Computed example of a mutant assay.
Amino acid sequence: MAAYLIFDVEIHDAAEYGKFMAAVKPAIEAAGGRYLVRGGEHKVLEGDWRPSRLVLFEFPSMQAAEDFYNGPAYQGMRPIRLSSSTARALVLVEGAQAAATPLPSSAPGASHRLDETGHPP
C-alpha cells in the first residue's frame, strides 16, 4: 500500500538547499518514490498549522519510505538539508486501501449513503 511523506520546510539558504534538492531527487526515485507536490501555492482552510513550503512524496510502502529516510543515500545528504533549512514537520502516513466495492451509482434516485466503513449499506 502506498505511503506519503509530508514535509513542511523553511529554507534559510536557497543556494545550499538547491544542492540538496538536486542530489535527493535521484535518491527518492531510486527508492521508488516520487514528488506529488513540490512547494506550490497552498491555503490553510482550518486549524492553526501555518506551513512554510510543503513537499509531498509518494512511496510504494511505509517500509520503502522508511528505508529511504534511514538509508545511506539520504542520511549522507541530510546534513546539507539541516544546514540550509528547518523541518517544521516531517510526517509519514500510510495511504488508504483501494475500496473493494465500487462507488455508488450517480444515477438519479441512487443512494449515496455510506456506512461507517465507507461502503454502501
Rank of each mutant, 00 (worst) to 15 (best):
E94M: 00
E58P: 01
E16M: 15
R53N: 14
T117K: 14
V93S: 12
A99T: 15
G71C: 10
Q75V: 13
P120Q: 05
A22W: 08
G47R: 02
A107V: 02
T86L: 14
E16C: 11
G18M: 07
G40H: 07
R81G: 05
F68G: 04
A87R: 12
E46M: 02
G71H: 05
I6S: 12
F57Q: 00
F20W: 15
V91Q: 12
R38S: 13
V9W: 02
H112Q: 08
S52K: 13
A100F: 05
G76N: 09
A99W: 09
Q63S: 03
Q63P: 00
P104L: 07
D115M: 04
T101M: 10
G47K: 02
S111N: 04
A27F: 10
L82M: 15
G76Q: 10
H119G: 00
S105C: 04
A15N: 13
G109E: 03
S106D: 07
E10H: 14
A23M: 05
S105D: 09
G33D: 04
E66P: 00
R34I: 09
A30F: 07
A27R: 10
P102F: 07
S85I: 11
T86D: 15
V37H: 02
F57G: 00
Y74D: 08
P104E: 08
F7W: 10
P120S: 02
L54H: 00
A65I: 03
I6K: 04
P26E: 14
H42L: 11
R81P: 02
A73G: 03
T86P: 14
L82C: 12
Y74R: 07
V24D: 03
A31I: 02
M1S: 10
P51M: 07
A22L: 15
D67I: 01
E94P: 01
S111C: 03
L103E: 12
F20P: 04
E66V: 05
S85N: 10
R81F: 08
F7R: 05
G18V: 11
I80A: 08
